[in-house]
Design a binder for these strands. Structure first.
Lengths: 233, 233, 233, 233
DNA sequence: AATGAATGAGCCTTCATTCAT
DNA sequence: GATGAATGAAGGCTCATTCAT
């Protein structure tokens, strides 16, 4: 029963911190919502700041358990994998209303990094990033520099995250049609996958590899060169 | 002398709000830094909130004056224009070391939109966005849907902004080499331009236009189709 | 034109001070309502407190000019005079909505006397009080002590003022019928006059005067003994 | 020990609110006088306003305990009862020198009613008022209208309260002899009782009852008609 | 182990007032 | 003579935190 209070606080604090930010969130608010004593936060966590740090990590650990990284389907082509990767990121960022608060927490961490940032990256971000790098390694010539792969990875991730980070601006720029089919997760996934696959062609050309014809057209060349291998989302 | 105090507050408040956010910033802090009386903020702006709103708009207006949108050089190709556009955005986001606080302000606005958001978008964001759309219109088949162009524009902008939004994560992911040549503005500009130009190929193919061959290869086709015309970034 | 601002402030301040009290009234409020500069109060009156003092006296001086003390009608009996006196006080206290704010000012002065109190009493209250004492002198035996007359005067005035001072309580005690005919100024005037006339009988008896019969019945005795003499309200 | 701070605040706030009024009283002042932390008021009462409301009711509840309504002595005549009633009110208003602050609180409430007003009237004022009405019912003909009895009650109470409400003016009008024997509680009680008893005669006459002679003279008729019954003041 | 009470620092805001023009 | 700008003091209130139990 000792940990129950602790857990309840942890679970309650997440969405509140995500919604209001660290400063605007009050310990009172959290304790009231969690229906625990006002002094509990300091008793269990020592300070508001410590609670925040633990909340951030707890939130992502829980999310990882609840939404485990999907394994690649067998015989998935590179295009399949990329599409799945993009979809996974989009789902995390935009998906399903109530699920989004973990991402909000993450965004705040990006904007104003705290001590929670480094472990967050190492535990939850780097694995995904490495898998994307791996996927790219399969598509690109072996001679491609790591830096190039990283920049390409950021280009892909950046397109996805933009709809979370700049969501407010996107909505204002395109008007009220934000919720329409054209900006559904499906549509965005198709677009970003198509955009990125086509872009990859330019980096395949750089290498001194022989047959140009096979690579470019319709993005099909990409698919062709990729062996089926598991890549988490 | 009437507006001097007002201006000093406005100029001082910007970086502080950018650094700490609205909640964590105190009026005392601003007034102390601006060396004005504590009551001045309420006298000139009525409230902390109003000060924030005016600060945000003032900051971007000033920035626009200081870094005016560059005109296209004569005879610029589409690739030239795109490269210039990308460079301008990157400069705004990452440029000039300590000067980046206006963008931080903007990021906060995206994360936690206030009433300052809409005028910000209309006055400062939309013009840029429209110019990018225009540029894309020149490159893409006439039949291309507006929605498609918008999504492509977001794909381009998203790649750039990612280095601002997720900067902290980027640094942690690639290690201490962030400041190296590989992630300089020049290098990023080259990369994003190359990536995007190649991607555009996929959307040029969609149209029922006849000669496919000329367009795609090396991104050269894009350049060919674009008449020289000035487009601001 | 120098005095116009001064006058406008004076006229505006009265009702506001009456409504809100000295503390709760702000100089800003008055200046805004009077449509004069914020610094005008201090310029013309030196301080908020001085303004208050002058406002109180100004208010009653104006009221006296606007509602001069009525002269007794010729051949008025003592009962007539008393009735007229009571009616005048009731009118001042309760009369006509908008007119009541001067009395509110007066009430505040009673509750929390300021320097404005003494001149107020001497200039505006004592004349009325003296006239009531005079009227009583006509009705009562010559041997009646001044103190007795004063206490009787207070008994009469007290009955009237109660409907101003304790108005809120009266309303709550008798329910919503406060505005009904039974508590109209006319009805109250009748009641208080009747009540007081009857009471006077007891003080007429005290004296060693001879004929008892003439005095008491129906209050008529009082009327009989009173010669017509002017009494201000 | 839980409520000790709360009680100390409540007890301290009473006289201060009474002296200065709600607006002019500061929470700091109260806390300093009560020797409690500045934040205590908000902790225990939520706001200055709530503290005021609770203070007003607490004050009267305490006063009621300290000065309980006296029971009628056995075989008390109507005159006895009226005298006792008047004395009780006068004692409440003027009694005990420095203790009169509860009444000041009440006066403020009359002048500028707050939410504290209604419960105050219902809990503390109405019981007294009802007992006076009852007492009058015994003295007056059965046919007497309730409204008439109420107005008479107000006439009696009004005489008493006048020495509290208009105390400042009374003092100024009669000069420095205010503290003399002539305006002692005893003397005022005698006067008001005598004045009111005599006045009642006029209302006894109104009824169509037969024998006029017995009632009027010397106020004795009143006494005669009243059966001995306990009436609280 | 857990809590209700209490704390002191600090928040934004408002005030009457003053000053330079 | 009159005002817009500025001032410093103080206001009520909220905060994260601590303490005695």
């Amino acid at each position: 029963m000792a940990d129950e209070t602790r857990l309840r606080i942890l679970r309650t604090a997440g969405p509140i911190f995500a919604e209001c930010g660290f400063e605007a969130t009050t310990v009172r608010e959290i304790c009231a919502a969690a229906e625990v004593n006002l002094a509990s936060v300091n008793y269990h966590f020592g300070s508001k700041e410590t609670l925040y740090l633990e909340t951030v990590q707890f939130a992502h650990r829980e999310k990882l358990l609840r939404v485990p990284l999907p394994a690649w389907p067998p015989h998935a082509t590179a295009e399949d994998k990329l599409r799945l990767f993009v979809r996974t990121i989009l789902n995390r960022c935009l998906g399903d209303g109530a699920v989004g608060w973990e991402t909000r927490l993450l965004m705040r961490e990006m904007l104003h990094p705290t001590h929670a940032c480094r472990p967050l990256v190492e535990e939850f971000i780097r694995p995904q990033f490495d898998q994307l790098l791996e996927l790219l390694a399969e598509v690109l010539p072996e001679s491609t520099d790591l830096v190039v792969r990283q920049r390409i990875a950021f280009s892909i991730v950046g397109q996805c995250l933009h709809y979370r980070f700049a969501n407010e601006f996107v909505v204002l720029l395109i008007g009220a049609e934000r919720d329409s089919e054209a900006y559904s997760i499906d549509a965005l996934c198709d677009h970003i996958t198509k955009f990125s696959l086509a872009a990859l062609a330019a980096f395949q050309l750089d290498s001194p590899s022989p047959s140009c014809a096979a690579r470019v057209s319709h993005g099909r060349s990409v698919r062709d060169r990729i062996p089926a291998a598991p890549i988490p989302s």
